[in-house]
Design a protein around this nucleic acid. Structure first.
Length: 486
RNA sequence: CGGGGCGUGGCGCAGUCCGGUAGCGCACCUGCUUUGGGAGCAGGGGGUCGCCGGUUCAAAUCCGGCCGCCCCGACCA
């Protein structure tokens, strides 16, 4: 007895979130405000995210590089919108080596202003294009309000930066990478998203177009999970990145940038987690299976551990990330709670009774309608059956996320008041008309704390296209996804 | 930056109003008994009470100043 559980999600989602980050040993606060320590268990999840994405980036022709942490303050000032967007939230180094610097250095809030001056030298001719780069890095944004993983002062991310000869190619690239993110979120994270384009108001500072994937968290709020920007020739002009075309003319390159961050871990927590703790999709789980041996006497211990070790070996050979929890300092019940809290998809309990019967008890972390949580399973062929079971869990998590997204979406708003009462009672994704007016978007934000997350892509649009703007009731120019957001 | 809260062993807190030996739970260490859903008993270790100054015989407690963190809003991946 003793340790009580987490605050239930339904009681205080925010408290639940903060507690789970600590309880699952994902992160801790550091000495500096807004900065977090990513603990080994949380970092392993990040490594798995990195591994999955990095593969996909390479498969689409990108190469990794690394650019510096600092940039001269003057470089940030080159692109007008970009400075305006980022200057207020930068950390600036004014002293180094015991002296005041002649020109202050900015700690990168993003790397466009570092990368483009360099690429200007690399790119001379159309033959040098496209340039397809990615870097895994840390960036610093001095946010006023921080939350572990969702918004921290320093965070880890990847940022892709590409240069192209034509507008069309850059557009294609920005779209391609949005697609990569979407696929990753679907297949690795079990995270159903809506893709689309940001409104001019919500665009990346300096971008021509910004695309995003928006995910729905269990509390009904939206989370921007990934973004991909078509930067047009804005940065090329600002940093004078010109190339000679096939016809001998000079032109500015067309560029893109795209990124996802450790925020994805926050998305995992708030998409799949429950009152017992974290629930991890198998592809991103540090341990996919944990084996908990049970014994009373030393003699039993020897027998049980013998079988458990064999099982661990077999599972490892099947390519399963497996952990045999043979600690003698904790009793089985304590281990059950711990691994459930940490979201391990499958647990195998094995004790003397099981060995007698030639079986083990297989326990699912996530139990869906009609499934048994625990099932006695014969030891023969158990290992072989695990990969398929993990795949099944993986896809059922995406299905569940899709179902939740649909259940929390509404597409038939009759009026602004209708939107108001719905968003206040059961927040979610509101697909509704928009006149295209900035005023209407701002009113929704100030009044209902609702923003246009994206103008959804074709496949997410409603069959019955809304004809009126949900705010002003004037004719609608487009359908928008409205939601409260993190 | 506005509003609220909090700084006391690793974590969570009580004690502060009304000054007088620094306490509780968890965690930790040792031993024995336990182990199929967060073990029990016994013993033990660990804190200049956020910092600086003031009042007092005496300050975690009263007074002044500073710093930090968390939560709620505006900015944001």
């Amino acid at each position: 007895m003793a340790k009580q559980g987490l605050t239930p999600q339904g009681e205080d989602f925010s408290a639940w979130y903060n507690e789970i980050v600590q309880a699952a040993e994902l992160a801790s606060h550091s000495q500096v405000r807004g900065c977090m320590v990513v603990r080994p268990y949380g970092y392993r999840i990040w490594e798995l995210i990195q591994a999955g994405l990095d593969r996909m980036f390479k498969d689409t022709g990108h190469e990794n590089a690394y650019f510096p942490l600092f940039l001269p303050k003057s470089a940030l000032d080159r692109e007008a919108d970009h400075v305006e967007g980022f200057a207020p939230e930068t950390a600036v180094v004014t002293h180094a080596g015991g002296r005041e610097l002649e020109e202050p250095l900015v700690v990168r809030p993003t790397s466009e202003a570092i990368i483009w001056p360099i690429l200007a030298d690399w790119i001379q001719s159309y033959r040098d294009l496209p340039v397809l780069l990615n870097q895994w890095a840390n960036v610093v944004r001095w946010e006023l309000r921080t939350r572990p993983f969702l918004r921290t002062t320093e965070f880890l991310w990847q940022e892709g930066h590409t240069a192209h000869a034509t507008d069309e190619e850059a557009e294609e690239e920005a779209r391609r990478m949005l697609g990569v993110y979407r696929t990753f979120m679907d297949e690795h994270m079990g995270l159903a998203v809506v893709t689309g384009e940001k409104t001019p108001d919500e665009r990346f500072a300096g971008a021509k177009r910004t695309y995003a994937t928006e995910a729905l968290m269990k509390d009904g709020k939206a989370l921007q999970a990934g973004t991909s920007h078509h930067l047009g020739q804005n940065f090329a002009r600002a940093f004078d990145v010109q190339f000679q075309t096939e016809h001998g003319e000079h032109d500015y390159v067309w560029s893109t940038s795209w990124g996802v961050s450790t925020r994805l871990i926050g998305a995992l927590i708030m998409t799949h987690g429950d009152d017992q703790g974290l629930v991890l999709p198998p592809r991103l789980a540090p341990f996919q299976v944990v084996i908990v041996p049970i014994w009373k006497s030393d003699e039993e211990r020897a027998r049980v551990m013998d079988t458990a070790c064999r099982l661990e070996l077999e599972l490892g050979e099947m390519g399963v990330r497996v952990k045999l929890d043979g600690r003698e300092t904790h009793n089985p019940g304590a281990k059950f709670y711990e691994w459930e809290r940490k979201g391990v998809p499958l647990r195998i309990e094995i004790g003397p009774r099981d060995i007698e019967a030639g079986q083990a008890v297989l326990v699912r972390r996530l139990v869906l309608e009609g499934q048994d949580r625990k099932a006695a399973t014969g030891l023969d062929g158990l290992s072989e059956s695990v990969p398929a079971l993990l795949d099944e869990i993986q896809s059922s998590m995406l299905e569940a996320s899709r179902a939740r997204r649909e259940a929390s979406s509404r597409r038939d708003f009759g009026s602004y008041e209708d939107l108001r009462s719905w968003i206040e009672e059961s927040p979610g994704f509101a697909f509704a008309g928009w006149c295209g007016g900035v005023e209407c978007a701002r009113r929704g934000k100030e009044d209902l704390k609702v923003t246009i997350r994206v103008i959804p892509d074709e496949e997410f649009r409603s069959d019955d296209v809304p004809t009126r703007c949900v705010v002003c009731d004037q004719p609608s120019t487009t359908e928008a996804l409205w939601a409260r957001a993190y």
